[in-house]
């Protein structure tokens, strides 16, 4: 009962936020509202007991995306132009209404939330629930599905992240930079003593937490994606407080590019090794003495690859955006 109540409140907050985003013209406020939107979705996932998804949504959606979008508007402008509508667009409106009505009609055929007879619950899910802990030795079923049973999907996700990083580097990277400065908010701010001291205190804690999330992913909510995001958040905090040059002295961009490739290489490499040892691609059972030990080792390595790749790619994207307005 109380959960339904919380669900309704969160969903109505999400709807209000979405409408507010549509109606605003100040891009800064819109980005903040996007962060709130992600955070509300994360709360909704947490209420639905999908803790891993909630964790990722909070870290990626509410955390890093907000920072990346802020870095983007620091390069462009903060105000959306008002589009004056002289005549009503009846055709688009009717298309939207009809599509929406069809979609709502489609939901009527969907099984109820948590229905045990739903196709999603009858296909492979019972197998995972029965066998996952036994076959991989990991208490957190989400991690064993993500990294082992569906390892190929996750490889695809990592490659997508990697491709995004490469695309940003191809478009914005390189030596030629815009010469007229003044757009770069990150560079010019002299930050106060309080901020610098607290940042120095917090950054090691954030890094330790990221490592905890990375290696605790087998046992609880967490894993490579979240850990990579949190770790890059630590460096981004450092960049914001101490400046871009200091951050590039800590982690040179060339090393970051190598790390991004290394993460994907670890993941694919584990697959190649399993083939060489006589198994299928990404079948970790052949890696260790026993099946369970092999699965455990494989999942650990793959998660490490994911973590390194996500960390490096996000940082590459942020540093490229932030370094854009520099002379």
């Amino acid at each position: 009962m109380i959960e339904v109540f919380i669900d309704i409140i969160l969903l109505s907050f999400i709807a209000v936020t979405a409408v507010a985003i549509l109606r605003m013209t100040n891009l800064f406020a819109i980005i903040m509202l996007f962060g709130i939107f992600s955070f509300l979705s994360a709360s909704l996932f947490a209420v639905m007991d999908a803790v891993d998804v909630a964790f990722t949504e909070a870290a990626v959606g509410a955390g890093i995306s907000t920072v990346l979008m802020l870095a983007t508007i620091a390069l462009t402008k903060t105000q959306k132009e008002k589009v004056s509508v002289s005549h009503r667009h009846w055709l688009p409106l009717s298309v939207v209404i009809v599509t929406g009505a069809v979609l709502v009609y489609g939901t009527l055929d969907l099984p109820a939330f948590g229905d045990p007879e739903a196709p999603a619950q009858t296909h492979v899910a019972p197998y995972y629930i029965d066998k996952a802990v036994e076959e991989t030795g990991l208490p957190n079923m989400v991690t064993s599905v993500l990294a082992s049973y569906r390892g190929f999907d996750t490889l695809g996700e990592v490659v997508v992240v990697f491709t995004a990083g490469v695309a940003v580097l191809l478009l914005l990277g390189g030596k030629h930079r815009i010469s007229d400065t003044g757009t770069n908010e990150i560079e010019k701010n002299e930050h106060s003593l309080i901020l610098r001291v607290v940042a120095k205190f917090l950054i090691p804690l954030i890094i330790v937490f990221a490592l905890y999330v990375q290696f605790h992913g087998d046992f609880g909510p967490g894993g490579g994606f979240q850990a990579g995001v949190i770790l890059s958040a630590a460096i981004i905090l450092y960049t914001l407080v101490f400046g871009l040059d200091a951050a590039e002295r800590v982690i040179p961009p060339s090393i970051l590019r190598i790390l991004a490739s290394l993460g994907v290489l670890i993941y694919t490499g584990v697959g190649i090794v399993t083939i060489l040892l006589g198994g299928n691609y990404l079948n970790y059972s052949v890696l260790g003495d026993s099946k369970v030990a092999g699965q455990h080792l494989g999942i650990l390595l793959v998660e490490l690859g994911v973590g390194i790749a996500v960390f490096a790619v996000l940082l590459v994207i942020f540093l490229t955006f932030a370094g854009r307005g520099r002379p």
Partner: peptide
């Protein structure tokens, strides 16, 4: 502990940014 440090710092940073 995390909130004890970040919350006042965030307020400070925000006020400082508004002043600047």
């Amino acid at each position: 502990i995390f909130l004890l440090f970040t919350n006042p710092t965030a307020s400070h940073a925000l006020a400082n940014a508004a002043m600047q």
